[in-house]
């Protein structure tokens, strides 16, 4: 049995204030998904893809319009209490915390909401504060915290009931690189503890780094489930090289490299598009050998991957 099972799940929102002029917005369209027990499963998609809607339905905060979903064998519509006992939710961003309270108070409050006995709630709050590295700030008001610190507190809150299943919705939003790296270690720890994690993100590198499998979603539709290796290949394949002060003769030589698909050149600045990791290496070698010192490689955006791999032009940045 999968820890999370989603079958033909559809969610339609009605937008607009007047009842008669409401419009239907399809957020999820017959979505199917299985997350194995103990797996870290990524849900990768751009903003508006339907990731958060799916997490809300799985966490019982939202009802599906059609289809069904279950967590640890319990239906999210008919057995909400059983589902709620088994899940932890971490929403990304600044929201979701009482700003005037301290981490210690907030965690104890959530321990009470999860019906933990007082002593356990107190002990677990203290343990989690230490685990997410907030011991030093345990009694300071959250309103003084950076986004990264708030995000770590979100994580601690999600773990307060020691749930076997965790939903992490864009958990690294606003985190600095160091905190994001620590977060990846934390996800590895959660997996080692046997927890099932469903992680939504629009960051391919993050998904590739922490997930066992990655499901790609866009405009409410599942595009497929891939291995992190495949995603890493996409990132490598579509990587581009950007450089400054490149002589015209060198640009001509780079243009001739096998795998270079397109070069944009403007007064010495060049952007080299490729379709193969080897082409990136060859172009970099030529630039370095040619004495160019201002250069960098840029990983493709999710939008670019979706365009090249699935032929989906979303017409917006992600």
């Amino acid at each position: 049995m999968d820890a999370v099972e989603v079958r033909d799940l559809t969610r339609i929102y009605l937008t607009g204030k007047r009842r008669r002029s409401k419009e239907e917005v399809l957020a999820l369209d017959s979505v199917g998904l299985g997350v194995e027990t103990g797996e870290v499963h990524g849900l990768l998609g751009p903003n508006g893809a339907g990731k958060t809607t799916l997490v809300k339905i799985l966490s019982t905060a939202l009802l599906p319009t059609a289809g069904s979903a279950s967590v640890m064998g319990h239906d999210v519509v008919d057995e909400t209490e059983e589902v709620r006992k088994r899940i932890g939710i971490v929403f990304g961003g600044e929201r979701g915390l009482y700003h005037r309270l301290t981490p210690r108070r907030i965690l104890r409050y959530w321990a009470a909401l999860y019906k933990l006995p007082d002593e356990i709630g107190i002990t677990r709050s203290d343990e989690l504060i230490e685990r997410v590295g907030l011991s030093q700030w345990a009694d300071r008001r959250v309103e003084t915290f950076s986004r990264g610190m708030k995000q770590r507190l979100h994580l601690a809150r999600g773990l307060i009931a020691d749930p076997p299943v965790l939903f992490l919705d864009e958990p690294t939003t606003g985190m600095d690189p160091v905190s994001a790296h620590d977060f990846r270690d934390l996800v590895a720890d959660l997996k080692a503890e046997g927890r099932t994690v469903l992680l939504t993100t629009h960051d391919m590198a993050e998904a590739e780094a922490v997930c066992d499998r990655i499901t790609l979603i866009d405009q409410g539709t599942i595009l497929g489930t891939k291995t992190p290796k495949t995603v890493a290949e996409w990132m490598g394949t579509l990587e581009r090289v950007e450089a400054e002060d490149v002589p015209a003769e060198l640009i001509t030589r780079i243009r001739a490299v096998d795998g270079v698909t397109h070069i944009e050149a403007d007064e010495g600045s060049v952007v080299v598009q490729t379709n193969h990791p080897q082409a990136v290496k060859d172009a970099l070698k030529l630039l370095v050998d040619g004495g160019v010192t201002s250069l960098k490689t840029v990983r493709p955006s999710l939008e670019e991957v979706y365009l090249h791999v699935f032929g989906r032009d979303r017409g917006m940045s992600v």
């Binding site: 966490s59 929403f91 929201r95 915390l97 909401l113 999860y114």
Partner: peptide, 18 residues
């Protein structure tokens, strides 16, 4: 406003009780 309502609704304690 604080974005706490969603998580509270998804907690085992009924919101009426809270």
């Amino acid at each position: 406003e604080f974005g706490v309502l969603e998580a509270t609704l998804a907690a085992p304690t009924p919101y009426g009780s809270v």
